[in-house]
């Protein structure tokens, strides 16, 4: 475990180099929030009214929360880096090292994520206050718990990204799979809570990973209650275990493939 902590620390310090480009990259976050602020303004003819159970303020804070979390991990980069490792055989070298490749990627990504979150989340919250005022039904403990579930949800997301990257063992280019995945969770969960989706599929979605990844934590942030917190945590624990196992299985199968092909 200690070695992963070390990887975490090293990557964290490494991230300091890229502060400038990260800050510049975060401008897109401000842009997205600004766009949706204007867009929803037109959809809510009356700011006090509710659409699918959400007020205007809640919608904007919802999107702010999900987009901030999303901006702190570079899913595309995870997939690309793992694909490169697979394609150029680097992954074979990793097998000789005394650590699990998956855990290594997790530690690295988590370090990068933590660094960015520490900068971006406070900034986003300040931005939110400036643009639309207070977090609805503000409850400090609730918000903190929501943030924690947000971190857990992100880890589920990262595991899925790693699995997609590992698909490079079996296909020429895993990037298109990632594009589709990222678009799906953008539409369902990031931009819109599950309540905005057609009624028929809502029950399915409530049991899908999307509940654990972004919808659950974001809804907690704008509308906290303990019952819902329990539901989110349970689904997160389940999906963390499930995807951790899946990721490792894909890795093992893929590595076996290399041995069969001779590298």
């Amino acid at each position: 475990m200690k070695k992963y902590l070390f990887i975490f620390k090293t990557e964290f310090i490494n991230s300091l180099q890229y502060v400038k480009s990260f800050i510049v990259g975060s401008l897109s976050l401000i842009l997205i929030i600004y766009i949706y602020l204007n867009l929803w303004n037109f959809l809510y003819s009356d700011p006090e009214s509710l659409i699918n159970g959400y007020s205007y303020t809640q919608m904007i804070w919802y999107i702010l929360f999900t987009e901030t979390l999303w901006s702190c991990i570079k899913g595309r980069k995870i997939v690309r880096d793992i694909s490169t490792d697979v394609k150029n055989g680097n992954i074979a070298y990793q097998m000789n090292k005394p650590y699990n490749y998956i855990n290594y990627i997790l530690s690295k990504t988590f370090a990068d994520f933590t660094f960015k979150l520490l900068i971006l989340l406070p900034a986003a919250i300040v931005l939110g206050h400036i643009l639309i005022g207070n977090i609805p039904n503000f409850n400090l403990l609730g918000c903190l718990l929501a943030i924690i579930t947000g971190i857990l949800g992100t880890m589920v997301n990262v595991l899925i990204c790693i699995s997609i990257g590992l698909l490079s063992f079996f296909m020429e280019d895993a990037a298109p799979i990632y594009w589709i995945y990222s678009k799906v969770i953008l539409v369902i969960g990031t931009l819109f809570p599950i309540e905005f989706m057609p009624e028929i599929i809502q029950p399915v979605l409530k049991y899908s990973p999307i509940f654990a990844m972004n919808y659950g934590p974001a809804k907690l942030f704008v509308d906290f209650n303990y019952d819902f917190l329990i539901k989110v945590l349970i689904s997160q624990v389940i999906y963390l275990i499930v995807f951790y196992i899946i990721t490792n299985l894909v890795y093992k199968k893929g590595v076996k493939n290399i041995n069969v092909n001779g590298g």
Binding site: P176, W179, I180, K183, V187, F192
Partner: peptide, 28 residues
């Protein structure tokens, strides 16, 4: 594959507009 997936990628964004327009049929 690249071409096809990009088309799918772009098309999926139309879902956003479908949802938006289910709320109101004219956005300014």
């Amino acid at each position: 594959m690249n071409v096809l997936f990009m088309i799918l990628n772009n098309a999926s964004f139309i879902l956003v507009w479908v949802v938006m327009y289910s709320i109101k049929d004219n956005i300014n």
